[in-house]
Design a binder for these strands. Structure first.
Lengths: 253, 253
DNA sequence: AGATAACTGTGTCCATGGGACACAGTTCAT
DNA sequence: ATGAACTGTGTCCCATGGACACAGTTATCT
């Protein structure tokens, strides 16, 4: 029962002591993950198969199973490898600057490895690196009168927005790419049925580019958070440095 | 080149005139889509294969290809079928109430068909229903001083948040489900490494449940939008009913 | 030193997946 | 009535993830 979860945890969080007997392994988790990342970067996550990854390393498919329980775990390793270390804490600046920088860093990480969007879908066990990213945001919100649950919710909100925009950004690939054609096709459709969808048609006709989407949402979220923080820390600006004001609950959303 | 996009557009937006000759089709796009939805509801999108869907209809796999160019198009049909009609306009209430209701409706639609999260990944051609949903949000933001691009960005922000939370919600399945185990495993990991991730550990230790995540983010987003709208419509409350204040651009995010 | 247990890489096999293609049966327009 | 157009299907192909047994390799124990 639940072996999959355990396997992944073991693989991501514990490095088993190298057994003493037998031939030395010719491969390593790092090399395998790197090969997987290479394939995914070049051809997308869909192109990542055991044989393709193995082929890139000049090994057979089945060799990989000596290191990795299955494909799901391989992908988990790739995710950890691709995320990389989170940006430095930068504890000097205020929460707003920190969150802004964090969001942009995350956005860039995803831009470097677009398949991260596919690989980080759904509930899964986070690896050390990914958890470190999360730690940064939550820590940035410490001491501003938010409850723990609220800090987590805020982090999810922020990360989710970056994700959403990154997904959008995939649609504007190079000219002639299948993604660009999709976008063009959608534009045509909306235009042709402008009578049924007047608001969307009007909005899409806006000459302003759509490249501000990340910062637009970011600004709204941060404004919303600022409003809450102001309300919590009170008009009297005591800047209470400590934890949960759990007495007042979360009723004043 | 780009046949896939065209196929999907044709299938979603045009119903070809029934040819007059030959046997009458025993199936229909509706029935096929419904069968696909049934499979996906019961066993997830991953379990949707041509043979399984065909089997449910007591046909062979290849029969489906007479109606649907390929699996991708089948999924597109399923999405359209599952989204259903968007909620009624409710043009009486103000934008904030409309957006709130819309977000909750969308959340419920996804709760009914969790696989929509997997099926609506990445850039794709929207169907009539899905576009109608989008139309509702964008329309609700008409006439509040936002540019067209901003209205779209706001819609994306809102829909993205609902998506994000729905994805989170998948993690809290029934006890004993694989999802619940994942969550438990993650909790264990965080707890065991609380020294490296103090902020996350503290936040997760919050006794308050996490079920407020949707409304929390929603409130922040709406507050942020309200701040922008207030700024745009100006302190003088003229409630300018018309379009883009494009002269001032989008510099004041 | 041998013997042996533990480990590694691999070849073979299977089930399932999407899809191409040809073919036979069915139906309507001429 | 006849042929064109259409439908459902059987067969085939290739790629995928994975199970399993087997041979080769290496450190430890006697």
């Amino acid at each position: 029962m639940g072996e999959a979860a355990n396997d992944t945890v073991r693989l991501l969080w514990e490095q088993p002591p190298r057994p003493t007997r037998g031939p030395k392994p010719a491969l390593s988790l790092e090399r395998i993950a790197a090969a997987g990342v290479e394939v995914a970067d070049a051809e997308g996550l869909g192109a990542v198969s055991m044989q393709k990854v193995a082929g890139l390393l000049d090994f057979t498919k089945m060799s990989l199973y000596r290191y990795v329980p299955g494909k799901a775990e391989l992908v988990a390793l790739m995710v950890e490898s691709a995320f990389g270390e989170p940006p430095a804490p930068a504890d000097l600046s205020d929460w707003r600057d920190q969150l802004t920088a964090w969001a942009h860093h995350l956005s860039e990480a995803i831009a470097r490895h677009p398949w991260l969007l596919d690989a980080t879908l759904g509930p899964r066990v986070l690896g050390p690196r990914e958890l470190a990213w999360l730690e940064r945001v939550v820590a940035a919100l410490d001491g501003h009168g938010l409850t723990g649950a609220e800090r987590m919710d805020a982090a999810v909100l922020l990360a989710g927005h970056v994700r959403t925009i990154a997904e959008q950004a995939r649609a504007v690939g190079p000219d002639g790419s299948p993604e660009a054609e999709l976008l063009a096709a959608l534009g045509t459709v909306v235009h042709r049925h402008a009578d049924r969808y007047p608001a969307v048609a009007a909005a899409m006709a806006d000459p302003d580019g759509r490249d501000q989407a990340l910062d637009f949402g970011l600004a709204r979220i941060l404004d919303g958070l600022a409003a809450l923080i102001d309300r919590r820390t009170g008009p009297r600006r005591t800047a209470s440095p400590t934890e949960n004001p759990s007495s007042q609950g979360r009723a004043d959303n």
